[in-house]
C-alpha cells in the first residue's frame, strides 16, 4: 500500500511537470504572432500565404543547423501561428483537400517541436516528417522564392532525410555542427 501511495505521488509530480511544459508553449505563441505577421506582410504578395509558414520553417531549419533547441521551439510555435493565419479561401477544392491533409500533419509536428525544448533529437524527428510535408506544400502552392531540396543520407540510421533550404550551400540541420556540410542538393524549386 505504501509503495502504491508513493508511486501515485510520483506520477502526479511527473505529469504535473508535463502539463507545465505545454502551458509554457501556449503563452509564447502570442508574442510570436507579431513576428510572423511582420514576416508575412514583408514577403508575400499573392493570395497564397505560404510565405509566413515557409519563413518559420526556414527559421526552424536554421535553428537546427546551430543545434539550438530553444530557437527551434520558438520557430515551431511561430509556424503553428502561421498555419493558423493561413487563408484557404483562394484555394481550389482539390488544393484545399491536399492542403488540409498536409496541414493536419505539419501543424502537429510544429507543435511538438515547440513543446520539446531540451530534446533536440525528438525535435529533429518531427522536423524530418515536417520537411516532407513542407516539400509537398511548396509543390502544391508554390513558394514565391527559389528553394533547394537537400538530402542528408546519414540521418535516421542511414535511411536519409530531406530538408528545404533558401541557400545553395549545404548546412545540415539533422547533424548540425557535428557534420554541417554533409548532404547534397537534390532538386531546385523555383
Amino acid at each position: 500500500m505504501k509503495t502504491l501511495i508513493y508511486s501515485s505521488v510520483f506520477s502526479l509530480l511527473f505529469l504535473a511537470a508535463c502539463s507545465n511544459g505545454s502551458n509554457k508553449t501556449k503563452s509564447t505563441t502570442s508574442e510570436d504572432a507579431t513576428v510572423t505577421t511582420a514576416v508575412a506582410s514583408g514577403s508575400s504578395e499573392k493570395g497564397t500565404s505560404t510565405a509566413a509558414v515557409l519563413a518559420s520553417y526556414l527559421k526552424l531549419k536554421n535553428a537546427f543547423t546551430n543545434d539550438n533547441d530553444k530557437d527551434a521551439a520558438a520557430a515551431g510555435n511561430e509556424m503553428v501561428t502561421a498555419f493558423a493565419s493561413f487563408d484557404k479561401k483562394s484555394l481550389t477544392p482539390e488544393q484545399d483537400k491536399a492542403y488540409t491533409d498536409i496541414y493536419d500533419d505539419a501543424k502537429e509536428h510544429a507543435e511538438h517541436i515547440g513543446a520539446n525544448v531540451g530534446n533536440i533529437a525528438h525535435q529533429r524527428e518531427h522536423f524530418d516528417m515536417l520537411s516532407k510535408d513542407m516539400y509537398d506544400l511548396v509543390k502544391l502552392l508554390g513558394a514565391n522564392q527559389s528553394l533547394y531540396v537537400d538530402h542528408c543520407p546519414m540521418y535516421n540510421n542511414n535511411k536519409g532525410a530531406i530538408w528545404l533550404s533558401e541557400v545553395k550551400d549545404i548546412k545540415n540541420p539533422y547533424l548540425g555542427k557535428a557534420m554541417p556540410t554533409c548532404g547534397t542538393v537534390k532538386e531546385e524549386l523555383k
Partner: peptide, 13 residues
C-alpha cells in the same frame, strides 16, 4: 480516421 499522411507519421512516432 487519420489522413494517410498522419497515419504514416504516427507509425513513425
Amino acid at each position: 480516421s487519420y489522413t494517410s499522411r498522419r497515419q504514416q507519421s504516427k507509425l513513425r512516432s
